[in-house]
């Protein structure tokens, strides 16, 4: 006899062994909050949005010297305005994409489609974070360049550096930036790795069936 047929015969006998829930047991469950990964992903994406907006905004409003320096860097008012409009535009675009992809997640889709919509949402967040990291990196480089250019004391010190000292300075700068990027990368790897480990595994398994 087919093994699964044997199992099937027994499978339906188990129906009587479950602890039956009455409607009084079911009502309270409906009031409970879901703890699904979609919910967690949603909170994380909201957190990301807020975090990066704050990172961009707080230094400008909280520190006068920063604002002055920024104003000095962007001597061209239009360039600064253009950049501001651009960065808010990007944030709005990401908010739109996030909500669209979150809305597309439906528990009544088939298993593969559901996994794909969740992975798509995760990709939107990934690109948002990537965009912010690249922007942070670019503004760090530009900021450093202008800081050196506009600070006579610093320019003077650097011009007296010999080649070896120059190399060491570069090495330190690159080292610090790498560690910074690595820590952020590790954080995301851990965060999404833990959250989506099972989903990724199951999605791979489904994809494997197609080859």
């Amino acid at each position: 006899m087919d093994e699964l047929e044997l199992l099937k015969k027994d499978w339906n006998r188990q129906d009587t062994t479950f602890k039956k829930l009455s409607s009084e047991d079911i009502y309270p469950i409906l009031q409970k909050k879901s703890s699904s990964i979609v919910k967690t992903l949603f909170y994380i994406s909201i957190g990301e949005l807020i975090f990066w907006i704050l990172i961009n905004v707080i230094p400008y409003f909280s520190s006068d010297s920063f604002r002055e320096r920024l104003d000095a860097v962007y001597t061209n008012e239009y360039a600064f305005m253009g950049l501001t409009v651009f960065s808010y535009g990007v944030i709005l675009l990401f908010i739109y994409l996030l909500f669209k992809s979150h809305k597309a997640i439906s528990v009544t889709d088939n298993a593969k489609k559901l996994m794909e919509s969740i992975l798509k949402t995760r990709r939107v967040i990934k690109y948002y974070v990537l965009y912010n990291l690249v922007m942070a990196f670019i503004s760090m480089v530009i900021g450093m360049y202008f800081a050196i250019m506009h600070d006579p004391k610093l320019t003077d010190t650097i011009s007296h550096f010999n080649q070896k000292q120059m190399l060491v300075t570069y090495a330190i700068l690159i080292g610090v930036t790498s560690v910074f990027v690595f820590i952020i990368w590790l954080f995301y790897k851990l965060l999404y790795g833990l959250l989506l480990k099972r989903l990724n595994k199951n999605y791979k398994e489904l994809k494997k069936l197609e080859v």
Partner: peptide, 18 residues
């Protein structure tokens, strides 16, 4: 039929083991 789909989707994809 609808329950099978939602049930399995939750078990395989959405559920986060506590």
């Amino acid at each position: 039929t609808w329950m099978y789909r939602v049930g399995l989707n939750t078990a395989i994809t959405l559920y986060r083991k506590s």
